[in-house]
Structures are given as C-alpha cells and as structure tokens.
Nucleic acid binder design. Sequence first.
DNA 1: TGAAAAAATGAAAGCGCTTACATTCGAATT
DNA 2: AATTCGAATGTAAGCGCTTTCATTTTTTCA
Lengths: 346, 346
Amino acid sequence: MPLRNTDTSLPTLADVARLADVSSATVSRCLNAPEKVGQATRDKVMNAVNELGYSPNFGARALAAKRTNTVGAIIPTMDNAIFARGLQAFEEELNRFGMTLLVASSNYLPEREEEQIKTLVARGADALLLIGYDRDPSIYRFLERQGIPTVVAWTYQADNPLHSIGFDNRAALRTMADHVIGLGHRQLGFISAPQATNDRARERVLGAKDALEAHGLNANALTICETNYSILNGADAFATLLSENPEITAVMCGNDVLAIGALKMAKKMGLRVPEDISITGFDDIELATIAEPALTTMHVPHRQMGRHAARYLADVILLKTQLPRPLALETVYCERETLAAPRASK
Amino acid sequence: MPLRNTDTSLPTLADVARLADVSSATVSRCLNAPEKVGQATRDKVMNAVNELGYSPNFGARALAAKRTNTVGAIIPTMDNAIFARGLQAFEEELNRFGMTLLVASSNYLPEREEEQIKTLVARGADALLLIGYDRDPSIYRFLERQGIPTVVAWTYQADNPLHSIGFDNRAALRTMADHVIGLGHRQLGFISAPQATNDRARERVLGAKDALEAHGLNANALTICETNYSILNGADAFATLLSENPEITAVMCGNDVLAIGALKMAKKMGLRVPEDISITGFDDIELATIAEPALTTMHVPHRQMGRHAARYLADVILLKTQLPRPLALETVYCERETLAAPRASK
DNA sequence: TGAAAAAATGAAAGCGCTTACATTCGAATT
DNA sequence: AATTCGAATGTAAGCGCTTTCATTTTTTCA
C-alpha cells in the first residue's frame, strides 16, 4: 500500500495548481466553469486533480461562494412512511439540478423543528422545505431575514401568502366525509392529530365539519379525539371513542397510521369492519393496502408534491425566478374495504 | 416591521465583537469555550449576540476548526421502516454529544452509495455510519486516506477487522431455520435480497443452510429466490416459488417487507397461513405485528445498534479513543402466528 | 507588599476556496 | 503592419471563523 504523503492533510486547490503549473484561479474555474478554460489547460488540471485525488473542501467553498447547492427539508417524522415517498421524489428532482438534500426530522415538536431550521440554515442550506404552515411567526421572520427561500408542502391555502405546494386538506377530508355521510352514517368519530400546532390536522377536521353541515347535520354528530400519530395511539383512541360513544358507526382518521391502529383495535374488540363499524384513513401509504381489510382512504400526491417543490426551489435559487402562484394538487378518494353503509339496526 | 440593516448580509463574529467591544477571539471563546471567559465579558457578548441575532457561519467554522461535529449515515433505503428506528436512536445519541446527523440513502445501489459517501465526506462529515460490509475496497481506502472514522452496522463478523456494531446475521437466520425445521418442515423456500452486493443477505442464506446441515438435510431442501426488498417483489417471489415448487411447506424471508408481500400473496392464492404454508420474516418492524396473521420473525436490536454506533463514533472523534472490539448484539426469535408445523398430509 | 502564577483578553495568521480585476496573448480587423 | 478585441490566465483580496502566541490583568501566597 503506497502512501502518497506522510502528512495527514488532504490535497488542496493550491496543490493541484502547483502540480498542474497553473494558478489556483484556473483550477477553480476548471471545476466550476470548465468552459472558461482552454482545452489543454483543462486536461492538465484534470490530470492533476485525479493524480492527487483532490476533492474540494465544502466549507471553504461555501465560505467563498456564499452558496452551498444544498437544500434542507424538515419533516415531522421518519418513523412511518408518510413523508418518505414525497421526500424521495424531492431529492431526485433536486439532484437533477445539481443540488443536494439535507433531511432532519422534528418529531412533531415545534421547538425541535425550530432548532432544526436554525441548524440547517447555519449549515448553509440555500433553501428549505417545510411541512405545513403552522409555526411561530418569528421563524418566518428569521428565514426572511436570512434570505432563505422556503416552500411549505403537504398543504395548500389559497389565501396564504407563503409559497405552498400541496393539496387542500380541508377539501380532501370533506370529500371523504361526503362519502361517509352519503352512505348513511350519522354518528361519526374522528381521530385527529393534535390540532393546536398542526394546521393540516385542523383543516382536515374542518373538512369533516363542512360535510356535516352540507348534509344538515350538526356538530354533535362528530366526536373528535386527538392523539399523536402512531398505530398504538390510533388503537387507544378508537377504543376510547367507541366505549364513550357506542352509537358511532364510522370512525374517520386523520391519517392512515391512526386508521391502521383503529382497525387493529376494532378487530380486537370483536367488531367486524366494515359491517359493524366503518374506518377511513388519509394519505394512502403502503400500509393501507396491506391492512386487512384494505383501508379506504384519500390518496395524496406525494411524489408530485416532492417534484414540484424541488422545481420551485431550483427556480428560485438558480434563476431567481419567483414562480407566480402556490400550487394546488389533487387528492383522490380511494375506495377499498373499510367503508360501507352502517348496519340498518343501528 | 423594523428593518435592522439595509444590506442583506448576516451579522458576523466581527459585528458582535464590535458591539460588545471585545476582540473577535473573545466572542469565539464565548461561543465555544465559555469557561475561558470572564463572567462580565460573557454577559456582554451574549447580549450582543442576541441583539444581533447572530448565528455562526458553518462553513467558516468548519474551515477554521477542521471539524464539523457532523456525522453522516448512508442507509440503503428510507422507503420502509427497516432502518428508521435504528437511525433515530443513532441521532438521539449523537445529539447527546453535541453532534448532528446527516442522512443519505443509496437505494441499495453500490454506485449511488459511493457517490453519497463522497458527498458526505466533502461536506465535512467527521465520521460515517455505513450499513453492511460489502463495498468496493477502494472506498475503504478512500475513507482511510481521508481519516474518516467509520462504523459498519447491521452486521457483525468476528473475523472482520472493520469496526462493526450489529448482530450475527448468519446465526440469527440459523436460529429461525432451526425453529422451522424443528417443527417438521423439510422443503423450504427462501426469499432473499440479491446476495451479490449484500453481505447481510448472504449471511442469512448461509444461516439457513447451516441449520439444514445440522439437521442432516441437504441443499436440495432449500429453494432460494432473489429479489429486491419490497412488498410487491415479496409477493411475486412467493408466487413463483410456490408454483415451481409446490412441495414447499415453509417460506423464510430475508426481511419482513418481503414476508409481508409473501403473506399477502399466500392469501390471494387461497392458502391459509400457517395451516397450509408457513412464512417467516426478519427484522421485526412494526408492519410485522400489523400483518394478519402477525408475522413470526427475528427481532433485531435496532435502537441498541444505533446507540452503540453513536457512542463508538463519539469516542473516536471526541476522545480519540479507539474502542477495543466490534460489538455483537443479540437477535431474538419472535414467535407470532405465521409459523406452525406442516400439514401431516403433505 | 511584591513577585510569581494564573486567568482573561487581544492581535493576527491562517483555513481552502471564489471572483473581481488586471494582464497577457493570439486572432481578427482595417 | 498597426490596432483592436476577446479569450485565457494570473493576482490577490477577501469569505467568517478558530487558535496560537503575546500581552495585560487579576489572584495567590510567602
């Protein structure tokens, strides 16, 4: 094993320049804007680069260029697959533009998210992808002050000035609730994520209420139970909901993970789904099709969101073009096996 | 909205120093080694920091300090939850040491992984977490040359010099196979990830063969089918395996995701599990308990691995202590509902 | 009380890169 | 053949921070 140099430090731009017998500026150009360098010089430099195994120092580059070609994303959780697909698409698209993705997760904790935002910005993220609108205004001020283009995904509100790429959570849940009510259900349960710090959860609940109202039902027809996203919590919430409100014939869930938990508990309680009770989800993650019976849910355009978000940010960073309007994508009702008309007897 | 300064640039160390009326060295110390600064000065500086909303520039810091307090991890996939729990524990533990985690995924593609490694190193990762041993030796040379401490997780081989923290895949699968064979199964199917570039997959297959041999069965008793990890692939592989080898009474899967696919297909084919056919998984991800019937599988110590890996790297980086030996953790057999004795008739 | 030791602070030299600006040089234009 | 111009290259000034070393201030204790 031939050791090239005894000192441990890595080759620098200057080393390459020396070996290739050109100035450091020329080496830098070769790497960043090859078209500005003559063919012969370029070859010389590239050879030196290879011989030395040179690779540019990120910190130095960021410091000098004031750009990192990195965008950060902070998602609430990596635990279940809710955001995986969208994020993957986001990354793929970013790569097309020569940018790298940095991911962090906040565990649905606002303070943690704030921390992560600061970290990513400090690390030089040129732009940020965030999930949902809800966060302290001071964060938005911070971002603006730092000049960090930001896109908010997984949500869309026509009247919100922040650039968002997502779907109308309220309308989506309303569609679902229309189906549920249309089938004859009159007493509904709703298992939601905590609404206080989660605009998407709030919107979804509102959507359910919209449907209720449209069908002439009053708010009493909907019993809401809040809990954090997890299968276990979904199961517990379902049990509570049903024991306290035995008249409920359909339980709508704020996402598929909760719904899977509810489904599991229903079986455990000896309830047949959908004969004895209907359950609906939201997101359409893979789990939804694995569950037995397969979950009736709303399909969310994960990959599209990711792709569009990446394009938007690339546009803003590279072309300094501000796209005119936030983008609303469509969710689609996804009928499977957990929603049916309530038993006549009930 | 009061605009503090018209020029867009962020406050720097120098700005803080000026405002606090101290030297930039003192400000730096306040931030990095507060105990070296007098109380009064420290307060003055901290006030200035807050007033300016100062946050240090990562690139500059990395450049000057030659450390980033960042460790990178490259996992094969984020798509399913296989690595999520372990990674989360890894991050939590890193945070304890004041370090940040950077995650990338390779999609099980060696070239992509290589790329990601280069990227993370270029970004200044002080250390790396990689999954499994298998990769081109040139990569290990590269890492060594760059002086990047690396730990390999999700695997453990006593005779391998690379520092690993994981479990003995071979022994684990052997345990499982012992159970299967012990119940009386004599014709086994095995759905594995492609073995060529995946030492863990190879080891698991070897474990199955070990068990076979120990029970005096020959290699013909095991039919192997390779496919990439995904539910769909698991389902397809199961169908192929059974149609070509109807005498098989138990299908062991290289991981839970494949097993879930197999389970799904079994039902679709009208086979009862475990009465008509047994299916086993590996990993014990949440999905395994959701599946119906719940999957019999091997539990892998995800969180422990993550935690220990973080500690090891922190030791190496912070204390420059090289831990003596790789760490072997235990897997545990996890009996649920998909494994039973074969039908007597068969 | 004064000398020595310890603690606190400052001055300044980089870290490795990009880029504005200056320079050189060959080709094109007249 | 002289002039102009543009392409190719070099020079050097930072980018914002850490850290060594020197200097000043405070503390300690004989």
